[in-house]
Amino acid sequence: MTDLPASSAGSATGVSEPATRATEKPMRERLVRLADHFKREWQIYVMLAPMIIWFLLFLYKPMYGLQIAFKDYSIFRGIVESPWVGWEHFETLFNNSQFLRAVKNTVIISALSLIFGFPVPIFLALMFNEILHALYRRTCQTIVYLPHFISTVIIAGIVITAFSPSAGIVNTIIGWLGIEPVYFLTKPEWFRPIFIGSGIWQEAGFSSIIFLAAIAGVNPSLYESAVVDGASRWQMMWKITIPSIMPTIIIMLIIRIGNLMEVGFELIILLYQPATYQTADVINTFIYRQGLQSGQYDLAAAAGLFNAVVAFVLVMTANSISKRVSRTSLW
């Protein structure tokens, strides 16, 4: 990996910590090297440009608007003309027990999705890898990919029908076992399992693609020599496949942790009821109800900013832990 310009900022602080920066080169030399590098590799940067421009336009430019979290925002007056109100919106949020509950629910739902949802695509990829019959494998893969391409609205429709107390397949099956029908979607205790389960059903297949790709990249000679040594398929999976795809797993895990606060709220909005707000209401649905439906954009921006700060801290923490423990990291 090339040393990207971002890390050159370190040279400014390098003065105060000379011991850890023993390899620091003079500024001038680095700049010359960088210019050389650009001259040689400019094609790569041209290819990178569209993505950078996309980032600047759609992720950095909107950050300008974040200031409305600290303003009494009027759409008509605009961002600049609206008066500052300091931390008022944050005080309102943290004095609101429903917001605190939403934060708690967000963390719980995310953590459970991570614990139960993250390993599933890895299992799937490993299992697909063990299927020898090509046509059978492709059929299985297509079946598990399919839900990914169904719109969330339809997924919600399927879930509501499946868990319906009168006609739903779930209640029909537990009816055979002699259990009374349960109105699952109004029971707070059932909301999280249903939500997380339907999320896994929808996305696990598609997420397994990246792990399959990683498995495909494992050097075949490793398996060949293992076969010569008399290793079983089980041993090959544990000793070769999993260690080889471990960097991919860790990178995916860090990314997932970074998105921990981003619960897929479209599905929640479609599935929740006032009766299940207790366990289902997350920060994003709170923002939707309080901010967008009631037109309080400034308050919604404050809640969103808080969400982003927490996510940022999480991804930093995950990255540094991983760097120390496994020497794999995003940056």
Partner: peptide, 23 residues
């Protein structure tokens, strides 16, 4: 109104459904 009402409304509906559903 903006500060209090959305939360109160949410709370009222939550209790309402909980009562009807018997929880």
């Amino acid at each position: 109104y903006d500060k209090y009402w959305p939360s109160i409304r949410t709370y009222m509906l939550e209790r309402q459904q909980a009562w009807i559903l018997g929880t």
